[in-house]
Design a protein around this nucleic acid. Structure first.
Lengths: 236, 236
DNA sequence: GTCTATAACACGATAGAC
DNA sequence: GTCTATCGTGTTATAGAC
């Protein structure tokens, strides 16, 4: 209320925002790192909050001070994977190219990045589909991970040398993200060896989407396209 | 091994299969009825296994003797709803009619039957999407409920006066059931008042499906149709 | 053998002291 | 911020009753 300018008198309060080098931030990071490691090594069910706390040399209550639930810790794990996928996509998508090729890179990279965690994914999605859960792909808490995923697909569209209907173009990344969610849902339930069926799905889905996007430019189908987009925006 | 004919000598053992009138079956039914009532009245989370046992005048261990987990009790609840939907569909689908009208009846009835349990559905689906869960719509344990749902959609197809491509006809009920799963997934996440958006989705999805089914008969699109069906069967 | 009850376990989460 | 102690839950072990 006195002013918005920082007061240099108190050295303890309002420390320079050095990108989270405070003690609290360090503890937080320690908890996340430990949790991610244990999730990765032993899976979700066998990793208990007590186990995380013990491995991090902290108490259970302390972990709950930083993260309101075990699910919120899983969220960090998910964000890690999303970040890996984004980095793995960066180079192959650096140069412009045909839409279908770029889309295939995005989908295939995502599937490949997730593949080591297939056993874990079932537990993850269990929380993710619950409405109102912080793990839901539509939740505010997931916004960072969702934005990162969406940015890849925006990149796919923007760097595409294929002509895309301008009406569709704005919504296309979001629609592709929904396709990606569908593929993920299938992947989680895919019990074929090495999830080969999911590879097959991506293999066939990409040309299909490519053809649909192309169809949106055909003059006779413009109105259908517009109708469909209108419906989508209403349902969103 | 001695024979398949019942021996009338022992009156206690092998009682006449009177459709579950044994004492165990009665207890089992009592547990289900109590659980379903409590789920309905207080929701999933607030209904504890202890609460169910107490309301049924039994012990917790007794409930676990008949049902391996709380999820399995929810399954019974789901089966109840499915049965209600099937009965509500019976009359409107009694007489043959156009495909789209019959499909609309099936979808709309399902949504209406589920609507009182929207708050509960989130918890239900949370377990249902987990691969290997008994509540998964693809699980062996769900076979009865799935069969009942599928039988409605088979009825929709069989009683349709609209011409349907014979190649598609065999798989169509299953495909429609998948559409229904998709609608359900949307419905669970639909937070609009009275789930109006889901009504809108059904309203638009039905003509769309109807048009797609019609397209499968166009000679030029037969091969595409066949290809798509082949892919679907591989992914299943 | 078929059923039922009691007691205990392990976990996620919380309360409150320091 | 960090701890200990505790709660309420689903689930299980196990002893006993019909």
């Amino acid at each position: 209320m006195v002013g918005t300018v920082a007061e240099p008198a108190t050295s303890e309060k309002n420390p320079p925002a050095e990108k989270g080098s405070e003690r609290g931030e360090q503890t937080k990071r320690l908890i996340v790192q430990t949790a991610v490691r244990l999730f990765r090594d032993q899976g979700y069910d066998k990793t208990t909050m007590r186990g995380i706390a013990q491995a991090a040399g902290l108490s259970v209550g302390n972990a709950y001070y930083y993260f309101p639930s075990k699910d919120h810790l899983v969220q960090e794990f998910y964000a890690t994977i999303q970040e890996d996928a984004a980095q793995a996509c960066a180079e192959p998508l650096a140069n412009p190219g045909p839409f279908d090729e770029r889309l295939r890179v995005a989908f295939a990279t995502m599937v490949r990045t997730m593949s080591p965690y297939h056993a874990f994914a079932g537990k993850f999605i269990k929380s993710a589909v619950e409405p109102g859960s912080p793990l839901s792909p539509f939740s505010p808490e997931s916004a960072p991970a969702r934005e990162r995923a969406m940015s890849i697909l925006r990149d796919v569209v923007e760097g595409s040398t294929t002509k895309i209907d301008p009406e569709l173009r704005a919504d296309l990344p979001e629609l592709l993200w929904l396709c990606q969610m569908g593929i993920t849902l299938y992947w989680v339930h895919d019990s074929s060896p090495e999830q080969q069926k999911t590879d097959l799905l991506v293999d066939r889905a990409v040309p299909l989407i490519d053809r649909l996007v192309a169809l949106a430019r055909v003059p006779g189908l413009r109105s259908v396209n517009r109708e469909a987009l209108k419906l989508y925006r209403m349902l969103r």
